[in-house]
Nucleic acid binder design. Structure first.
Lengths: 171, 171
DNA sequence: CATTTGCTTCATAACATTGTGAAGATTCAA
DNA sequence: TTGAATCTTCACAATGTTATGAAGCAAATG
């Protein structure tokens, strides 16, 4: 074997990976995550990732640490096996991505709160920061309701495709 | 005058700016946007930004181009005035931020669609990409309803603070 | 307990990004 | 048209980031 099995896969990973990079993920984690989604297997050893992406094991090591830390991959060690295996947390990718976003928002809120503490709430600038913090808190709360909305959207889209009335979701 | 008027402001900009960097915004645009929010004025010339942040006009030039391109700042030229002035688009910062996010999501969707076209929908990997694209489309649609939810959240929070019943928002 | 396998850490070299001063362009005023 | 003010572009130096090979550790096997 000599690397990624198809050129299409390689380009798909590249394309999707760049989009992930654009939203702040470092390069190698982005490529690894893109590969894990686009490739057909659903479990990978570090060696397979290195082989598949044609990069060194060292690069994979850093990348999967990042992805595991941010909750986008989980690491499992099978008993009687020397190496870890990596996979996405869940059948539902959206759940993974959503969950992974929460700590980021929390981080953001903490930063803005710190900034507010520094400049005070009384100035015009402080007020803008307070408004920003409020909005971020709302965003955070809104995320908790997102699974319900996603389920609702899905059933509507499916209904439209199949031609039946959508299932009514609880408010 | 010799730069940023207070050390608190400087540190607030630094803190908030780093949070913005963490979500993928390049360094200098992040600092400029943080400054524009946290500082007390609401209109800035490029020179004021350079002076306030203690960086060169050249650095500001690139940063504001980025911010204007992504819709986080607008550039206006006052008649009879030599330089442009910059400000946030709107009294409501959340609206600015939300709007700024849409093209990013569209970009993302386009990338995943390209990736799907490359690997096909029939493979397990392709299916995961389709699921991802679906979720992104939902996210995009969900964003359009966000103003309503935000208004609802605000009235609830205000009600809680002031001690009256929240205004009922339309479904 | 030695060996093999597989990941991680580390120093480093290649590469990319950032911010600068200097020069160029554009706009208004006179 | 000249001059002054202000922004933009450019080449470059400083700084960060990335990915690598090599060496080191840890876990399982015999």
């Amino acid at each position: 074997m000599h690397g990624m099995s198809s050129d299409s896969l390689f380009r798909a990973v590249e394309r999707f990976g760049q989009a992930l990079e654009g939203s702040g993920m470092p390069r190698m984690p982005a490529r690894v995550f893109a590969y894990v989604l686009a490739e057909d297997s659903d479990r990978y050893t570090a060696a397979q990732l290195a082989e598949g992406l044609q990069v060194s094991p060292a690069a994979i090591s850093g990348a999967v640490r990042y992805l595991v830390d941010t909750g986008l991959l989980i690491k499992e060690r099978a008993p009687g096996r020397r190496g870890d295996i990596f996979r996405v947390l869940d059948g539902d990718i959206w759940a993974t991505i959503t969950t992974a976003r929460k700590p980021m928002i929390d981080n953001f809120i903490a930063a803005v709160d710190d900034a507010i503490a520094l400049v005070g709430e009384e100035t015009p600038g402080g007020q803008r920061l307070v408004e920003t913090a409020d909005f971020l808190r709302f965003t955070r709360a809104d995320l908790d309701d997102l699974p319900r909305r996603w389920a609702s959207y899905r059933s509507e889209v499916r209904a439209r495709k199949v031609g039946v009335a959508p299932v009514r979701t609880p408010r």
